[in-house]
Design a protein around this nucleic acid. Structure first.
Lengths: 211, 211
DNA sequence: AGAATTATGTATTAATCGACACAGAATTAA
DNA sequence: TTAATTCTGTGTCGATTAATACATAATTCT
């Protein structure tokens, strides 16, 4: 099946990857059409004809990000033999990703919709959903740890996953602020230091006073 | 000393507070002049005559935020008798602040410059400096814990402070995403669970393999 | 070849951005 | 009262935003 009219003069995949890196670096609103078309090497009519709109382009860029950058991080979850090892590897892999030397610091999923413009609620919801999925994957990995026997059965899975997600989101902000990889690894280690206490403590109502 | 010309017809402090809440809710770029002047109840020439520019207004708003909202959080650091208690109180106070029921969720210092528009580098630097000061205050509080004897002398102060700052920054993001106060308190508790391990471990080079 | 189809480049659209010109209003000083 | 001063409201400035109109180029189908 051959397409009929004038053939496209640019590589769609390459243009999408350029768009992804641009969104990664500047966020959704920060990546203006002028910046995007310049980075992609095309004019705006070509962009709209090929991708529909800026928002649809962004969604495709996010999907590409998930399929490439983020997949490596999530892959580490499955590889490790214990839940703790998986979280440790995830943190280290995440820091490596966040301090990308090519200039795209931070996580597209976290910083892409950083300014909450109400008219771009679709963007916000789309990313929030993706973040939710990642947290769910983390919960599943911890649950597997219970099945494997390396995590106590009474561990508060949701709280533990929320904690490590919060740390990774905070690391995204600090990466964008120029934090060194070394200092971020230290933060990851510090978070991991909570592991034993977290899995040991049952999901009790919070005792605000302690001995 | 009486001012000469036509008197100002609005309350400067009230207008500044309205601006602060607007910046708090929308961030620097999200708070457009139209939104600001509407919230402040004045026209843009009055805003410029009174505050200079949008950027100067933002800096004054940040200062007001520090002097009011954030001061309460920092005050808890000094009140507590131990460094651990101070961090615990800080986390709880921070969560309360981040889940402000008036609709301003998250921290102005963290989310105010969320989109890194290169032309607004001054805004970014200003907030980054304020965040740095807060982290320094946290380091000082832990250092005091060493002096008071409730923190081991070999504790890695900078790493501990960076860790809890990272958690609080992550909590800002999750607050903006609508996380419940309950879930955020759980995250704070989880972070605090790392305390004993953190202060116990000397600032050694990271042993990536563990028993 | 000629019609049909699709992409490209130039130029432009309406809307919004931050910022300000200007005239009139409100006050004090002389 | 008159001049000087300062603030207010209307209106608008040039720049930038995302998104297209339009004519032309390049390809396939008949």
């Amino acid at each position: 099946m051959v397409v009929r009219g004038r053939p496209r003069s640019f590589d769609r995949d390459a243009a999408l990857q350029a768009a992804m890196k641009t969104f990664w670096q500047f966020g959704y609103e920060g990546a203006s059409m002028a910046v995007l078309t310049d980075a992609m090497g095309i004019n705006s009519p070509s962009l709209y004809a090929c991708f529909g709109s800026k928002e649809q382009l962004f969604r495709e860029a996010v999907d590409l990000y998930l399929a490439t950058e983020d997949k490596k991080t999530r892959g580490t979850l499955a590889e490790q033999t214990t839940a703790r090892g998986a979280v440790e590897a995830m943190l280290q892999r995440s820091v490596a990703n966040l301090t990308d030397p090519s200039g795209c610091r931070g996580c597209l999923l976290v910083l892409g919709d950083s300014n909450a413009a109400p008219e771009h609620g679709g963007i916000h919801q789309y990313l929030a959903q993706r973040r939710k999925e990642i947290q769910a994957a983390l919960e599943e990995r911890i649950k597997r740890g219970i099945a494997d026997g390396d995590v106590p059965a009474h561990a508060n899975i949701k709280a533990i996953a929320a904690f490590f997600m919060t740390v990774m989101q905070g690391l995204s902000l600090r990466a964008r602020d120029g934090a060194s990889r070394e200092s971020m690894l230290q933060v990851g280690d510090a978070a991991l230091a909570a592991w034993e206490a977290l899995v040991a403590k049952p999901a009790a109502s919070k005792p605000r006073k302690r001995a």
